[in-house]
Structure formats: structure tokens, C-alpha cells
Design a binder for these strands. Structure first.
Length: 234
DNA sequence: CAGGTCAACTGGGGGA
DNA sequence: TCCCCCAGTTGACCTG
């Protein structure tokens, strides 16, 4: 018996499975989750092996692409004398089915059992197929988001590297200026780095521990070297 | 023919 | 214990 035909499934697009799975009577267990549901005859796990029907698969898919919305009554799923179903073909959803599933996914990324049943009925799929589609869809969404996050972090990393390089360079320049013996320190420092001492309003003498002052003039404003304690020059 | 896509499977974890 | 979800995997099919 082929439940797909009974339900009006597109036989080209529908795996042939045991007759009653996911019709509300299956109880999966740990260690035997899906076995009773999906393993039937020689249908092997992911990527079922199929034989006879595969020959017509490509041609039928080409036809399908042209008239994917149609209702198919013909069958490429056959049973031999032993009732063993030999037409096993990986499901490919029609555009209409995919569109409806996408629409449902936009509305809610997970389904409750009632929604699942309803969607399956609309799509003429088994609830388990709808469930699997949503699982895979969530996985794709997650993967895509991870890729986006990864790109964003890469850009952040690049920006920080550039900033780090710039700051290192600036630091080297400042160090070089500080070490130069040819000029008094206060002349070596860029104006921007000289700051008024908040306490005495003098420029600081960064190098000496003495009380010598860089200026002979005692006029305001005075500056201090930000590299040292704000007050020692005073 | 290699690599990508995708439906479907497997096995484990967790909630009720 | 049941049921659902997720991560990982498989294998059919497609595409360049």
C-alpha cells in the first residue's frame, strides 16, 4: 500500500514510508526515536537508496519544474510482488510548498502539533515532513546568522587591529620625541601633548627631579608634562 | 566530477 | 516515558 497515493501526494516528490507514521499513533522512544517511523524495507537512513524509480526521476523533475503546481495522480512509486516498495526518491518540495512553508516559518519558527497537522494537510505532506522541514530551516537560519556574526566580528577585529597599529605608532613617536637630546623637552613635545598643570598652572619638567624650571619666564600660562605626575614639576 | 544543497535520519538532551 | 529540539550526518540530486 502506498499511503502517498492515498493522500494525494506527489509520488515523485514523496518518499515512500511505512504506512502509518506520524498519523498520531507513533510514540518515539529514546534510542529508537525515528526507527519505527522511517526505516522501512530497505529505505536506509539519510539518503535512502532507491532503484527503479530513480531512472525516471530526472525527467519527472524537469516536467515538474514546468508545472510544479499541478496535482499529480500518476505514480512512479511501485510495489513489487512482495509489497516491497521500490520507488524511493528523495523528496523535493514544489515551489508552492516551499513558499507556504517559508511563509509559515516567517510567522513562527516553531510549530505546535496543531499547526503542524494543519500545515501538513494544506501541503499534502506528512506532519513529520513538515517537522523536518522546520528543523532544517531553523538550522539554516542559525548557520546564516552565524556567518553574519562571523563577518561582523572579522570587521571589528580588523578595525581594532588598525587602531592598535595607529596607537603603537603614535606611542613610538612620542617616545622618540621624549628621548631626543637635542632640544629641551618642552620643545620636543607637540603642543597638543602639553597640558596646563591644574594646581600651579606651570609647565612640568618631566625629566628632572630638581626644581629647575624650563622657563626663565614665570609668566602664565605654564604647562606640565602629562607623562609624569601632574604635580612634581611644581 | 567536485562541491553545494537539501530532505531525511540518528542519537542525545531536556521539559513536562 | 513521551515528545520535541538540536547537532551532526547521510545520500540523492543539482550545478558549474
Amino acid at each position: 500500500m502506498n499511503p502517498c497515493n492515498n493522500l494525494g501526494f506527489d509520488p515523485i516528490l514523496t518518499l515512500t514510508l511505512s504506512s502509518d507514521h506520524d498519523h498520531g499513533v507513533n510514540k518515539r522512544k529514546h534510542g529508537d526515536h525515528h526507527g519505527g517511523l522511517y526505516r522501512q524495507d530497505s529505505v536506509s537512513g539519510g539518503g535512502s537508496s532507491f532503484s527503479v524509480a530513480s531512472v525516471s526521476v530526472k525527467r519527472e523533475r524537469e516536467v515538474k519544474s514546468e508545472e510544479s503546481e499541478r496535482v499529480i495522480s500518476a505514480t512512479s512509486v511501485e510495489e513489487d510482488d512482495d509489497g516491497v516498495i521500490n520507488g524511493r526518491k528523495k523528496l523535493r518540495l514544489t515551489k508552492a510548498q516551499s513558499a507556504l512553508l517559508e511563509q509559515a516559518f516567517k510567522h513562527h519558527s516553531t510549530l505546535n502539533p496543531k499547526q503542524k497537522q494543519e500545515l501538513a494537510r494544506e501541503l499534502k505532506l506528512r506532519p513529520r515532513q513538515v517537522e523536518v522541514w522546520f528543523q532544517n530551516r531553523r538550522a539554516r537560519t542559525k548557520l546564516k546568522q552565524t556567518e553574519v556574526d562571523c563577518e561582523y566580528l572579522k570587521k571589528c577585529c580588523e578595525t581594532l587591529k588598525e587602531e592598535n597599529t595607529r596607537l603603537h605608532k603614535e606611542l613610538q613617536e612620542l617616545k622618540a620625541l621624549k628621548m631626543s637630546p637635542t632640544k629641551p623637552l618642552y620643545m620636543q613635545l607637540p603642543a597638543a601633548t602639553l597640558t596646563m598643570c591644574p594646581s600651579c598652572e606651570r609647565i612640568g619638567d618631566t625629566t628632572s627631579t630638581t626644581k629647575t624650571r624650563p622657563f626663565t619666564m614665570d609668566t602664565k600660562p605654564h604647562f606640565f608634562n602629562p607623562f609624569t605626575n601632574p604635580s612634581p614639576a611644581c
